Simulated scan of single mutants.
Amino acid sequence: MTRPTHPLIIPSALSTVLDSVTLIDTRWQMGEATRRPAYYAGHLPGAAWVEFEGVMADAPGAGGRHPMPSRDVFAAAMRAAGVCNDRPVVVYDDGNSLAASRCWWLLKYFGKEDVQVLDGGLAAWHRAGLPVTTELPDVAPGDFHPTDPGAALLDADGAAEFAADRLLLDARPADRFAGQNETVDPVAGHIPGAVSAPALANLTDAGTFLPPDDLALRFTGLGIRTDSAVGVYCGSGVQATHLALALEASGIRPATSVYIGSWSHWITDPERPVE
Rank of each mutant, 00 (worst) to 15 (best):
L8Q: 12
L14K: 13
V17D: 04
V17K: 13
D19S: 15
D19M: 09
W28T: 12
E32A: 15
H43F: 11
L44Q: 05
A48P: 06
A62C: 00
G64K: 05
H66C: 06
P67W: 06
A75W: 03
M78F: 03
A80L: 03
A80D: 13
G82D: 05
V90G: 03
D93E: 06
D93W: 06
C103H: 04
K108V: 00
D114G: 00
D114E: 12
L118P: 03
A123K: 10
A124C: 05
A124W: 04
P131F: 02
V132G: 01
T134W: 02
A140Q: 13
P146F: 08
D155V: 09
A163V: 12
D165E: 15
R166E: 14
L169R: 06
A174Y: 05
R176E: 09
A178G: 04
A188E: 13
P192W: 12
L200Q: 15
L200M: 15
T204Y: 12
P211E: 13
P211T: 11
L215Y: 12
R218Y: 07
R218C: 09
T220K: 14
L222R: 08
G223Q: 11
D227I: 07
S228Q: 09
A229Q: 15
V230N: 00
V232D: 00
S236P: 08
V238D: 00
H242T: 09
A244S: 14
L245G: 08
I252C: 08
H265I: 01
